[in-house]
Write a protein that binds this DNA or RNA. Structure first.
Lengths: 346, 346
DNA sequence: CATTAAGATGGTAGCGCTACCCATACTTTG
DNA sequence: CAAAGTATGGGTAGCGCTACCATCTTAATG
């Protein structure tokens, strides 16, 4: 009785957008059939599929993914949580993730924690409010609440950058300690004895701290003395490298090699050395990480441990997508390893 | 009669998440009151607000923004559409946008067009399906469909990077032609006469093409001959700079200055020149854009036109937020200008 | 002290879509 | 040829939240 009355009341909120119901009317089928034609085309006849497609085209229908998400739980959004966008490494990984997800019809929701695990925890809460289809987050260290919430959640989660035995769900990355170990090992093999470690933001960036740990382990194994650890409490930059070189040159017992926590800092060291006429590697060897493009354009070329960053992003996205398509990925924990790219700087 | 029966049927889809109704029950108020307490605290009594907050805390309630978005239209998501994540410039802008939006409780949905306007158009359709609160996109050139759809849409839209008279809605950026003009003008004033322009990806990156236009205009005004245009059909990289230097040195009538379409390429030129012992600026002057951090660590320092990229992102986000809070921003079109940072390379 | 305004809370309907179940029309099987 | 599948389409009821309107207080007004 009054239901018709209500129905006749003009919609007050809709913005006149074309809805699935409009398409259904135009195609002469029920709304649910349109939904099926669009989402599971195999379950409708070819003829209906065609009529629906034509109606979609004619009306310019664009699905409201929010509504779909509410009904089906799962919005084709994948939040990606990283510490910072100021780090080139993350950018390349994100770029790869984004490309892969977008190709599969998923959108990336990007959020940054500023290296703060509490912030990460509250971000996870927030993004779960978007009913995402999966989540990608950085590192293996999280607040317990994050871990339990995501485990209970039951949808695909990929942790990137690091590798470990016990991820929340799936994991793609490299072993930070092994990285640090490999570089110092290389320097020792090259005959350097007093190797200094230059780190930036170690308190925040615990993955950089892992590299330091690997460095120290390699020193112990070789029975070598430490060449000192220089720590700068700020994000990595060329400027940090410049200052590190100054500080190293001022040291009483000068190191013969510097192990930099990443390529940006190492590049800063090399650039400053060239400016000051300090010969590399004769007076001082320099090694870095990640294989930034700049590394091979410096003189001498920077020795670096290249990590397949794009690959990391792509594989993370693919693990997620595989799970979303119902399969069980083989090797849900993947160590991508690294490659020593020997330049003239060591 | 049967409505109770239905109600008793266990919910089959909900994942047991705490809902607003649960909070309402716990706090002893109606759901709508909880909604108000959370979204418009001014409209409920302090006492109710407290009870609700306590219940939220006790139950660990996290709002389902999807549901809110469906009901209210507006999901606190801001899609940001850029051509590529491989360009440092975009990264810095995005970083700034993200920081500002996140601080205001909005999330950034990032999508890339790969420099393709058709892709941009379909991306706009897709992201509008998320009922976003606003949209940020790159440049002022779009498919007509994009422009009309966003205009009709009625929510805040900011176009970044470029500036122009007739944005879809709001606009923050710099004048690309003026940039190109200023650099060549500077080179002419420094006494250089044969100025080559090195561009990469000009066909895709029409903003780089604008800089070329400015360059040519400056040449005309000065009555100077063109030193040639070298175009590389690939994204900007150090490598492009390296090749550009080779190509320039091989030219019959060698230019005395190179105007590079951005700092990455210019840096590649400088690095290669230093490797080859070509004196800068005596034999060849080099100028670039954007003020990348690397520019000032090169020897000689790169002369560059610095653009306030973070500022651009921040202002774009702020224009959007201002509109979202109901205000009408003053100066919805903002030209951020640029600064000539004179280095030793010119 | 009646009358009005303002403030606080609740009831109801629905945002646009899809999960679940059911109703047909065909096949396939013994 | 009946019984049992197997496609194909539709009906109904929400997903969790907020807009709109109605109701009930309480304070302000003349």
């Amino acid at each position: 009785m009054d239901s018709q009355e209500i129905r006749s009341r003009k919609r007050h909120r809709g913005k006149g957008r074309v809805t699935l119901a409009d398409v259904a009317r135009q195609a002469g089928v029920a709304p649910i059939t349109v939904s099926r034609a669009l989402n599971t085309p195999g379950r409708v006849s070819a003829e209906v599929k065609e009529r629906v497609d034509a109606a979609v085209e004619a009306l310019g229908y664009v699905p409201n993914l929010i509504a779909g998400g509410l009904a089906a739980a799962g919005t084709r959004v994948i939040p990606v949580i990283v510490p910072s966008l100021a780090i080139l490494t993350f950018i390349e990984v994100i770029d790869a993730i984004q490309k892969r997800l977008e190709a599969a019809g998923y959108q990336m929701l990007l959020a940054t924690t500023d290296w703060d695990l509490d912030r990460e925890a509250s971000l996870v809460d927030t993004v779960l409010g978007y009913s995402p289809s999966g989540v990608i987050l950085t590192g293996l260290r999280h607040r317990p609440r994050v871990i339990s919430r995501l485990r209970d959640w039951g949808r695909p989660v990929v942790e990137i950058m690091e590798v470990g035995d016990d991820p929340i769900d799936m994991n793609v990355g490299v072993d930070g300690v092994a990285l640090g170990h490999a570089m110092t090992r290389h320097l020792i093999e090259q005959g350097y004895r007093r190797i200094a470690f230059v780190g930036s933001h170690l308190g925040h960036d615990y993955r950089a701290a892992q590299r330091l740990e690997g460095h120290q382990r390699a020193l112990e194994e070789a029975g070598a003395a430490s060449g000192g650890v220089l720590e700068y409490h700020e994000p990595a930059s060329y400027e940090v490298g410049v200052r590190a070189l100054e500080d190293v040159m001022a040291m009483a017992s000068r190191p013969d090699a510097i192990h930099c926590s990443n390529d940006i800092v190492a590049s800063g060291v090399l650039l400053a050395a060239s400016r000051q006429g300090i010969r590399v590697p004769e007076e001082l060897a320099v090694g870095g990480y990640l294989g930034l493009p700049l590394a091979e354009h410096l003189t001498p070329k920077l020795t670096t441990l290249a990590v397949a960053r794009s690959e990391m992003g792509t594989q993370a996205a693919e693990l997620l997508l595989e799970r979303l398509s119902g399969k069980t990925p083989e090797r849900p924990i993947r160590d991508l390893g690294f490659t020593l790219v020997k330049g003239g700087s060591t």
